[in-house]
Computed example of a mutant assay.
Amino acid sequence: MSNARHLGYRDELLADGQVHRRYEDGRSEWRRRGTDRQIHWHDSLGRSGTDEPLGRDLVKRRYADGTAEYGRDLGYGRTVWGGGLVTLNRSSFGGRLGVVVGALGVAGVAAITAAQLPPLALSEVEEEELRQQARQQTSGGGGDGGGSSNGGGDISADGDGSGEHHGDPGSPGSTEDFGDWGDSDDGWDGDDFG
């Protein structure tokens, strides 16, 4: 997929427990963790919605208007969205690792295969199966988990509402996984930014 676009973002934990996500295209998104395994968000363009982990490496971004899109976590803070947008979390890595991840973010765009693209649509039954897998993974339950082994589910957002990857995911569906949702509800950890 040589024509993929990439968009970086940085997350900042705010005193009230929300995360302020700043995209390199100038957009901002405010994210808060819900008790329902979802991230609730609103952005500087007036949009809002939720990001939900599905299975091992998928995330469903649902907009307030009822539309939805899917992203796939590629690891190292990268998420690819159905419209060919790759979001890259630049806030998680520093130093030498940050340079390597930055290079992967750009070079990795050309390495994205059709198998790594997220589905354009899933049935309710398919989504529920993936939710069950995600619950098993976070509760330590068995099962094959499906998906890839890089774990996580980016939660980036796009922002133009065009029907093609709504905007530029660097918003709600960022690039980190949902981490251990069994951890305390008193704040975010490094895995919650995605």
Rank of each mutant, 00 (worst) to 15 (best):
M1T: 09
R10P: 00
G17H: 10
G17V: 03
Q18A: 15
V19N: 10
V19K: 01
Y23W: 09
S28G: 13
S28D: 14
E29L: 10
R33F: 04
R33W: 00
R37V: 05
Q38I: 10
W41R: 04
H42S: 14
H42V: 01
D43P: 03
G46C: 04
G49V: 02
E52R: 12
P53N: 10
L54R: 03
R62M: 06
E69V: 11
E69N: 01
Y70S: 05
G71I: 02
G77D: 02
R78N: 08
T79V: 14
V86K: 00
T87I: 08
S91D: 08
S91N: 03
S92D: 07
G95D: 02
R96T: 11
L97W: 07
L97N: 05
G98D: 03
V100L: 15
A103R: 08
L104P: 01
L104H: 13
V106W: 10
G108L: 07
I112W: 01
T113L: 06
T113G: 15
A114T: 11
Q116V: 05
P118Q: 02
L120R: 12
L122Q: 03
E127R: 01
Q132H: 13
Q136V: 05
Q136A: 14
G142L: 09
D144E: 13
G146Q: 09
G147E: 09
S148N: 04
N150H: 09
D154A: 13
D154L: 11
I155F: 12
S156M: 06
A157G: 13
D158H: 08
D158F: 07
G161Q: 09
S162W: 01
G163P: 02
G163V: 03
H165C: 08
G167K: 04
D177G: 15
F178S: 11
F178W: 10
D185W: 11
G187C: 02
G190L: 06
D191G: 14
D191T: 01
F193E: 00
